[in-house]
Design a protein around this nucleic acid. Structure first.
Length: 875
RNA sequence: GCGGACGUGGCGGAACAGGUAGACGCAAGGGACUUAAAAUCCCUCGACCUUCAAGUCGUGCGGGUUCGAGUCCCGCCGUCCGCACCA
C-alpha cells in the first residue's frame, strides 16, 4: 500500500543501508568503462560538519551520481585533512590528546556525512594523521630532497605569535595569520623549503591549459606568481672604498628606458650594504632600527610615508661616468623583491616622485605623451607612466618606450663593468619558495637528523615512518616535540654517533598536496602512489571546493604534482583538469535590543506585504534583522546540518542547497526556502504516484496517437535534454527549475484526464514521464528517488540505472509560435508551420490585427525574418 | 593605486551564440476545502494608465552601433573580490 506521505525518516536510513550492503558506490578497478574522478576538497575534522560542507559535498555527489548514470566508472572518495593547530589548541584547553580529539571528531563527522546519503567509496577513506599516510609523505619528502626540490635555508620568515609557528607567504592574509588572525611578525630562522620557484614559469604558463578552471582563479595564481621581464643593471660606486668593501649596487628594473630620468639610488634597510654601512654610521643604524620597529605589516597597512637616509655614497650612471647619483637607504624598498635596490626615476614612478619631492631631488621627464610638446612637459606631483616618446635621453630620444628598453638592454649587455656585462636581461617572480617548517607537534615529522659531525642527513627510508611520540605535554608554549625528553635523541644514520631529530613538522598543506593521488590506491603499503593506477585515474576530472584555496592549496598541489612527476610517482603535471569553486552559505543575522547576537533558532520572523520583522521566541521582544553574512559562530547565524536533516531529511537539505542560487555564488539559507523544498519532496511523491495510477487507468484501446501523449512526451524529453545540459555545466539551480517545470507540466496534464479513460499511448507517456522525472531528480534527492523507483515497480536501484536517452525528435513541433515585433517592440505571436517560407511568414505577419494597428495604415519598409526565432516589421 | 567580477521585480534568480525581459522558486495579497488548523488546490503579483480592449515606461546612469541591446562599444556611478610601496 502506497502511503500518502513520503516518510524520509524511514526511507533515508533504509536506502543508505541498501547502498552499503550492495556496495553500490564501491569503485571497481577492473572496469573497462571510461573513468571519471570527482573529488571535493576533503574536510578538516573540526568537530561537526557545517553547511558549507553540505553544499560542497552535495554538489560533488550530484556530479558523481550523474556521471555514474551516464556510464562512467566513477571514483568518488572521502578522507580527512587531519593534522593542524586546532587539535593542539584543544589539547591545551581540555587536556585531550590531539589524536583522540581528531579521531573522535572524524567519527562524528563521518556519521554526519553518511546521513547525507553521499555516494562515496568509503573503502578508500584515510586521515592524513594516520602513520600509514604520513609515512609515505615522509618518503616523498626524501625523494624531493634527493631531486633538489627541498632546501634548508636561513631567511626572514613570517612568525605567528599566537600559533607559535612559521607561516608561508600564502598563509598571511592582510598581514595576519590565516588561522589565528594574529598580526604576523618577521623572524630570521633556518627553515625547510620546497623550491616551488623552480617551477614558477611552468606553473604560470600551464595556467593557459586549465580551460576548465575559473578564469578568476587562474588570474589570481598568475598575479601571485607575478612574472616580470626586466634588466639587471650593475651600478659602480664612485667612492674610494674607505667605508665599504662594496663597489657595486645591483638593480632590477622593468623600466630601463627611463635610465636617463634617474635622480637617486635607493636600497632596502635590510640590504647587506645598508647593514655594513650601519656599522660606521650611527644615524643610519638608528634609521634602520626605526624601520624595523615600524614593521612590515604595519607599514603595509598604513602605506606609510616614504622615508630615506642619505648614505653619502654616489653611484655612477651606466651611460655617463661623470654623472653620479646619491645612494639612499629607503623604507619603501623591499629586500624580498628583485635585488633589494632600485634606481629612482621620479618623473615616471609615483613612489620615486614622492620620495624625490620630499628630499628635493628634482626630476627629469624622459617619456613625453604624444599629444604634449616636449618643452612644455613638466612633472610636479603626479608621475607619468603612460605611453609616449623618449626625450632628454641622448641616444634614446624619439624612440618608443619598447624601443628604448631594447636599446638600453642591448647596450648594457655589450658594455662591461669590471670583467662582466653591465646589464643582463632577467625574468623576475613575486613567488617565493614554500616554507614548510612548522614548530608544532600535530603534523608530519620532517624525516631528517642533525649530526654535529655529519651535518643534516635524511632518515633512511627503511626507518620510516618517523612517528610522533604519544606522550607529549602541552603545558608550555613552543613545540612539544622540542620539549620531549627523549624523542629527538637518535643515532646518526651515517656515523652512529649521537644526533638529534628535526623537530619541525610539515605544513599541513603538504598533506593535502597529494591526497588525491593516494585515493587512487590507498592500500599500497610499500609506496605512496602506485603509478599505473594513479596514471589511470588522474587527473581529477572535477574538483570542487571553496575559493579560499584559489592560491594556497591549489598552487601547492600543482607544484607538488610536478614534483611527483619529476620523482617518478606520476606521469602528469596538472592534478585537477576541472575546478569548480562554490560560494558560501550565508544567513541573516539577528540582534536583541541589548545588542546580543541571537541564533536563527531563537527568532521568529514574520512578514507582511510591506515589511519583515523578527521577534525573540523566548519573550516576544522585537529583534533587529541584521546583514546577511557568512555563517559564523561569532555572529551566531549558523544552522546545524544535523538539525536540518533531522527535521526535514537529507534530500530536502540537498535540494535547497542547490536550488536557490547559482553554485558559484553565495546561497542564502532561509527557513522558508527549506520549507519550499520539503513541500516539493511531498509533491514529487504525489505526482509520481498519480502518474503511476494514470498509467494503469487506461481504456485499453490502442488507437490514433493523441495530442495529450505528444504533449507529455515533449515535456519529459525536453526537460531531460535541459537537465542533462544543466548537470554537465554544473548549473544545479537551473536543473532544479527545469525539474519543477516538468513537474508543473505533468500536473497540468494529469488534471486534464479522467482516470479509467486514458488513451493507451497517453498511459505509456505517463509511465515514461514517471521514470524520467525520478531519474532527473535522483542525483539531487537520491533517497526519495529510490523510494519512487521501487514504487514504480523497478527491481533494481535508480542509483544503478542508466541515464534515459532523450528523443530529440519529440521536441520539434510542426507548428511554431514566432514572436512578431514592429520596430523592435513585440506586438503579437504568429503561429505558423515550422517550415513556412519567407513570403508566407511575411503575408501572415501583415495579416495580424496587432501588426495592422501598430502600422496604422503605413506600409512596412522591411520585414526581417529570423528563421525559427522572430519576425520584425520595420515601419 | 593595480587587476578582476558584478549591477534585472519586495527577495533569490532565469534569459544558450544580439532575437518574446522577469523562467523557476521564496515572500505577499485574495479565494476554495475544513467546526478549526495543518496539508492541498485555484487566482493576482515590475511600474503607470485602464471597466474592457489596448497602450506607455522599464534590466545602475548618460551616449552609441543595430531592423532589434539585459547581452556589443564608449564614458560615468555603485557593490564585491584579489593583490598591494613588486622597482
Amino acid at each position: 500500500m502506497r502511503p500518502e506521505r513520503y516518510n524520509f525518516r524511514e526511507a533515508e536510513p533504509k536506502w543508505q543501508q541498501v547502498w552499503r550492503e550492495r556496495d553500490t558506490f564501491k569503485t571497481q578497478e577492473a572496469d573497462a568503462r571510461q573513468k571519471y574522478y570527482v573529488l571535493e576538497m576533503f574536510p578538516y575534522p573540526s568537530g561537526r560538519i557545517h553547511m558549507g560542507h553540505v553544499r560542497n559535498y552535495t554538489m560533488g555527489d550530484v556530479v558523481a551520481r550523474y556521471k555514474r548514470a551516464r556510464g562512467f566508472n566513477v571514483l568518488h572518495p572521502m578522507g580527512w585533512d587531519a593534522f593542524g593547530m586546532p587539535a593542539e589548541n584543544a589539547a591545551m584547553q581540555s587536556k585531550t590528546h590531539p589524536a583522540k580529539w581528531t579521531y573522535d571528531n572524524i567519527d562524528t563527522m563521518r556519521a554526519q556525512l553518511k546521513s547525507m546519503g553521499l555516494s562515496l567509496d568509503w573503502s578508500r577513506e584515510f586521515a592524513t594523521c594516520d602513520a600509514s599516510y604520513y609515512k609515505h609523505q615522509q618518503a616523498l619528502f626524501l625523494d624531493f630532497l634527493a631531486a633538489g626540490l627541498v632546501a634548508r635555508k636561513q631567511s626572514r620568515v613570517n612568525w605567528d605569535p599566537v600559533d607559535q609557528t612559521v607561516l608561508a607567504n600564502e598563509q598571511v592574509i592582510d598581514g595576519r595569520g590565516w588561522r589565528s588572525g594574529a598580526p604576523v611578525e618577521q623572524r630570521e630562522l633556518t627553515q625547510w623549503f620546497f623550491t616551488i620557484t623552480k617551477y614558477a614559469d611552468d606553473l604560470l604558463a600551464a595556467l593557459d591549459t586549465l580551460d576548465r578552471w575559473p578564469e578568476k582563479v587562474r588570474l589570481m595564481q598568475a598575479n601571485w606568481i607575478g612574472r616580470s621581464e626586466g634588466l639587471l643593471v650593475r651600478f659602480a660606486l664612485a667612492n674610494d672604498g674607505k667605508r665599504t668593501n662594496a663597489n657595486e649596487i645591483h638593480v632590477y628594473t622593468t623600466r630601463p628606458d627611463t635610465l636617463f630620468g634617474a635622480k637617486f639610488m635607493a636600497i632596502s634597510p635590510e640590504h647587506p650594504l645598508a647593514r655594513e654601512l650601519a656599522h660606521y654610521d650611527k644615524g643610519l643604524a638608528d634609521f634602520i632600527a626605526d624601520c624595523e620597529r615600524r614593521g612590515t605589516s604595519e607599514a603595509a597597512v598604513e602605506m606609510g610615508e616614504k622615508r630615506g637616509y642619505d648614505t653619502s655614497l654616489r653611484a655612477v650612471h651606466p651611460f655617463d661616468s661623470n654623472w653620479t647619483l646619491p645612494v639612499y637607504v629607503a623604507n619603501f624598498v623591499l629586500m624580498e623583491y628583485g635585488t633589494g635596490a632600485i634606481f629612482g626615476c621620479p618623473a615616471h614612478d609615483q613612489r620615486d616622485l614622492d620620495f624625490a619631492n620630499k628630499y628635493g631631488l628634482g626630476n627629469i621627464p624622459v617619456v613625453c605623451p604624444l599629444d604634449v610638446e616636449p618643452e612644455k612637459f613638466v612633472i610636479t606631483d603626479t608621475a607619468y607612466d603612460g605611453p609616449g616618446r623618449m626625450i632628454n635621453s641622448r641616444f634614446l630620444d624619439g624612440l618608443t618606450i619598447e624601443e628604448a628598453k631594447e636599446e638600453v638592454a642591448r647596450r648594457l649587455e655589450a658594455q662591461t663593468l669590471g670583467n662582466a656585462p653591465q646589464g643582463e636581461r632577467k625574468v623576475n617572480y613575486r613567488l617565493r619558495d614554500w616554507g614548510i617548517s612548522r614548530q608544532r607537534y600535530w603534523g608530519c615529522p620532517i624525516p631528517v637528523v642533525h649530526c654535529d659531525k655529519c651535518g643534516t642527513l635524511p632518515v633512511p627510508k627503511d626507518q620510516l615512518p618517523v612517528t610522533l611520540p604519544e606522550d607529549v605535554t602541552f603545558d608550555r608554549p613552543g613545540n612539544p616535540l622540542d620539549h620531549h625528553p627523549t624523542w629527538k635523541l637518535v643515532a646518526c644514520p651515517a656515523c652512529g654517533g649521537p644526533a638529534t631529530r628535526e623537530t619541525d613538522t610539515m605544513d599541513t598543506f603538504v598533506d593535502s598536496s597529494w591526497y588525491f593521488a593516494r585515493f587512487t590506491d590507498p592500500w599500497n603499503a610499500d609506496a605512496p602512489i602506485t603509478p599505473p593506477v594513479a596514471n589511470r585515474w588522474l587527473p581529477v576530472d572535477q574538483y570542487i571546493g571553496g575559493i579560499e584555496h584559489a592560491i594556497l592549496h591549489l598552487l601547492y598541489s600543482r607544484f607538488f604534482t610536478r614534483g611527483l612527476r619529476d620523482t617518478g610517482h606520476v606521469d602528469l603535471a596538472e592534478p585537477f583538469a576541472g575546478l569548480f569553486t562554490q560560494g558560501m552559505v550565508v544567513h541573516e543575522t539577528y540582534r536583541s535590543g541589548s545588542g546580543a547576537w541571537l541564533s536563527p533558532a531563537e527568532v521568529d520572523v514574520q512578514a507582511d506585504a510591506s515589511s519583515r520583522r523578527a521577534f525573540a521566541k523566548v519573550d516576544g521582544a522585537p529583534v533587529e534583522i541584521g546583514a546577511i553574512e557568512k555563517m559564523s559562530k561569532s555572529r551566531r547565524n549558523t544552522v546545524d546540518p544535523d538539525d536540518i536533516i533531522q527535521s526535514f531529511g537529507a534530500d530536502t537539505a540537498r535540494w535547497f542547497m542547490l536550488s536557490d542560487s547559482p553554485p558559484e555564488r553565495d546561497v542564502i539559507w532561509m527557513e522558508e526556502g527549506v520549507q519550499g523544498a520539503a513541500r516539493l519532496v511531498q509533491r514529487l511523491w504525489r505526482v509520481v504516484g498519480d502518474l503511476k495510477n494514470a498509467a494503469l487507468g487506461g481504456n485499453g484501446a490502442a488507437g490514433e496517437p493523441t495530442e495529450g501523449a505528444r504533449v507529455v512526451r515533449k515535456a519529459s524529453h525536453s526537460a531531460l535534454i535541459k537537465v542533462e545540459q544543466d548537470f554537465e555545466r554544473l548549473h544545479f539551480n537551473l536543473a532544479v527549475a527545469h525539474i519543477r517545470e516538468l513537474t508543473n507540466a505533468l500536473t497540468d496534464a494529469l488534471d486534464e484526464v479522467e482516470t479509467g479513460d486514458i488513451a493507451a499511448d497517453l498511459c505509456a507517456a505517463f509511465r515514461e514521464a514517471a521514470d524520467i522525472l525520478v531519474q532527473l531528480f535522483a542525483p539531487m534527492m537520491p533517497h526519495l528517488a529510490e523510494e519512487c523507483w521501487a514504487d514504480l515497480g523497478h527491481a533494481s536501484l535508480v542509483a544503478e540505472a542508466p541515464w534515459p536517452v532523450a528523443d530529440r525528435t519529440l521536441v520539434i513541433e510542426s507548428m511554431i509560435s514566432l514572436p512578431v515585433q514592429v520596430n523592435g517592440r513585440k506586438r503579437a505571436d504568429l503561429v505558423i508551420e515550422r517550415d513556412a517560407d519567407q513570403a508566407a511568414i511575411e503575408a501572415a505577419t501583415l495579416a495580424l490585427d496587432p501588426v495592422q494597428r501598430a502600422l496604422a495604415g503605413k506600409a512596412p519598409k522591411k520585414i526581417i525574418v529570423v528563421p525559427q526565432r522572430i519576425v520584425n516589421v520595420v515601419a
